[in-house]
Amino acid sequence: MFEISHETLVAFSKSWGLFYLMGFFLCVVAYAFWPSNRKRFDRAKTSILDRDDKPWK
């Protein structure tokens, strides 16, 4: 049967694991700071303060 040795697993985590986390980090930062997202974020954070107590329908 195909066996994964301890060293293989460590090597995999130290390379691909790192790339995956770094890539993920970059995506999240890009999303959070993407200029055109600013408007929807600003709206989201202020709209919860509206004194509205009915659903849209």
Binding site: K39, R40, S47, R51, D52, D53, K54, P55, W56, K57
Partner: peptide, 14 residues
Amino acid sequence: RLESDVPAAVALPG
């Protein structure tokens, strides 16, 4: 009751 509330039926900014 807050009667002035309008359900979000009209288009909202954003």
